[in-house]
Design a protein around this nucleic acid. Structure first.
Length: 561
RNA sequence: UGGGGCGUCGACAAGCGGCAAGUCAGGAGAUUUUGGAUCUCCCAUCCGGAGGUUCGAAUCCUCCCGCCCCAGCCA
């Protein structure tokens, strides 16, 4: 590894590259690419691939291209290419001037096809798609050769040219590679290279009516760009012989394809198909719904690029199918936000507290630390007054054994303020607690008692007369089960969507320092979790998303008993 | 009785013939004006199974078992 050694953990792909560098396989170059198809939004599975491709390039002082794999005009849209570029950039990667499109190479692909025809390695086939399927054979039975397989080169050349000229309708003919209809690898049974598609392309417009297939286009694209290591997911392992076949037959520069296992995350879905169902079925509010594991969803949820990159690093890269515990992702965002998010007090489910021995009209300002992890972030003033709100969950009229918070007759600390003792509980006609009467100890201002007496709990609070109103959206796992396919017979993942994945709280009270929170701003609401201002915040309306809860020992204790 | 992969702690994942890293989760404790953070300790005598080679195997060989992917003119 020597000078190229990175401080980050290695993996089998980096090991291969290190070895290739040692043997000077590519003249010391490392050049990767991230090749999304612009037919949907990127998700955290793509983030793994992006971090791998761009990360490896960076580690070895190489380059990584961004390439749109846009060979199918019927599925792809410009809207997606812009979103993809934004997501990759947001993740922190730079493709500099190397933004490419497979469609840039359409002319070159065509020339290569002509060359293969001339070599007798490709032919125009008139079989319909149904017939092609029948001729292909099955997993256990070999296929049959197409009756058009041995057309003379001249006839193939003529037909292929006329395919391009638009003389034939969609589906009437294809250009196929002449390989081996008896191969155990079905991909080698004369795969289709070109299909006729009279459809406009988002970049080439109406110029083409024949479009190359993935297997044919991808390897040549890699070759044209001088890619050294073409990293893709496991399901393409079977395609590698074909990747190699085209490049060998064309006798052009030959990158190597390496496959790794795609990311699966517990309690969520990870496929375009499923994301589309969620969006179109109205189960979520869009591709950037904070419950979605799309990059845009995570961004809106409050995840940072740093956390996602760190996550990608921690999960590793290997060839074994696996499901990563979503708790690891949560750990990564907590770790990041703990260091950088300002602490602030917000009461999500308010319970009114009147401090009976506190003056009616003498609000005061108390000093609060912005981030105990980082003194450099300073302090701020928080207003305190006779009427405050505390969290409903922080009071229990009949506290269980391990409950340390407020209860009748019990003393607790209000963070940065005073010790208070509950002296009275006021209920409505339904018996629900609607207000607490407490006394405070003026000697404990700031939160310390001069006599050294201890309290077991510290509560966050917000002064009623100074409180900001806000809407807070609490998110939970999208699914009720770790595996989206663990469903009853005949049902799909939509049957296990967590009905509690979104809870909207509209009566939340925030400390006044949050007045100017701008969308994307991230905070720790003390004792509640990390939150970020949602784009729906506008004018005077504040809307926050809960990114993730804090680690909650109390919840764990409750769960146990 | 097709082809290609993969099986190491609850979840990821190192290990590449010398006697099982690390991380998350979980547990115990210290500390704490967030039941947060931090710190300490515990958590695979065992590497899908069975044989074999070897002084010595998770690592090599053989057989078996299990899981994933492939029959789009999708990528």
């Amino acid at each position: 590894m020597s000078a190229l050694e990175s401080t980050r953990p290695s993996n089998f792909i980096k090991d291969i590259i290190t070895e290739d560098l040692k043997t000077d396989k590519y003249g010391g170059r490392v050049h990767t690419r991230f090749p999304p198809e612009p037919n949907g939004y990127l998700h955290i599975g793509h983030a793994k691939s992006i971090c791998l491709n761009f990360g490896v390039a960076k580690d070895f002082k190489g380059l990584c291209n961004l390439r749109m794999d846009d060979t199918n005009p019927t599925k792809e849209e410009v809207e997606y290419v812009e979103a993809i570029k934004q997501d990759v950039r947001w993740l922190g990667f730079d493709w500099q001037d190397r933004m490419f499109y497979a469609s840039d190479y359409f002319e070159r692909f065509y020339e290569c096809a002509v060359e293969l025809i001339k070599k007798g390695r490709a032919y125009v086939c008139d079989l319909s798609s149904d017939e092609v399927r029948e001729y292909r054979g099955t997993l256990t039975a070999p296929g049959q050769e197409s009756p058009y397989r041995n057309r003379p080169v001249e006839e193939n050349l003529d037909l292929f040219e006329r395919m391009r000229a638009g003389e034939f309708p969609d589906g009437s003919r294809t250009l196929r590679a002449k390989i081996d209809m008896a191969s155990g690898n079905i991909n080698m049974r004369d795969p289709v290279m070109y299909r006729i598609l009279h459809a406009g392309h988002h970049r080439t417009g109406g110029k083409w009516c024949i479009y190359p297939m993935y297997d044919y286009a991808h390897c040549i694209s890699d070759s044209i760009e001088g890619i050294t290591h073409s990293i893709c997911t496991l399901e393409f392992e079977d395609h590698r012989p074909l990747y190699d076949w085209f490049l060998d037959e064309l006798n052009v520069y030959h990158p190597q394809q390496i496959e790794f296992a795609r990311l699966n995350l517990s309690y969520t879905v990870m496929s375009k198909r499923k994301f589309i169902q969620l969006v179109e079925g109205g189960y979520v509010r869009g591709w950037d719904d904070p419950r979605m594991s799309t990059i845009s969803g995570l961004r809106r949820r409050g995840y940072t690029p740093e956390a996602i990159r760190n996550f990608a690093e921690r999960i590793g890269v290997a060839k074994r199918d696996s499901v990563v515990d979503i708790a690891l992702l949560e750990y990564c965002i907590r770790e990041d936000l703990n260091k950088r998010a300002s602490r602030v007090m917000a009461v999500l489910r308010p319970l009114k507290v009147v401090i009976v021995n506190y003056p009616e009209d003498k609000p005061e300002e108390l000093d609060a630390v912005n981030n105990p992890e980082d003194p450099g972030m300073g302090t701020r003033k928080v207003p305190f007054s006779r009427v405050i709100y505390i969290e409903k969950d922080d009071f229990r009229e009949d506290p269980p054994k391990q409950f340390f918070r407020l209860a009748p007759g019990r003393e607790v600390r209000l963070r940065y303020a005073y010790y208070i003792t509950c002296v009275d509980v006021i209920k409505d006609e339904k018996g629900e607690v609607v207000e607490l009467r407490c006394t405070y100890d003026p000697a404990t201002r700031g939160g310390d008692s001069p006599d050294g007496r201890k309290v077991k709990a510290t509560l966050h609070w917000v002064s009623a007369e100074h409180a900001l109103e806000a809407e807070v959206r609490l998110y939970d796992y999208l699914l009720t089960k770790p595996n989206p396919d663990d469903v009853e017979e005949g049902k799909d993942f939509k049957s296990i969507i967590n009905p509690g994945s979104l809870e909207i709280l509209t009566d939340c009270k925030l400390e006044p320092s949050l007045k100017d929170a701008r969308h994307g701003d991230k905070y720790q609401f003390e004792r509640m979790g990390y939150f970020c201002a949602d784009p729906d915040s506008s004018g005077g309306k504040l809307v926050f998303n809960r990114t993730v809860t804090l680690k909650d020992t109390w919840a764990k204790v409750q769960k146990r008993s």
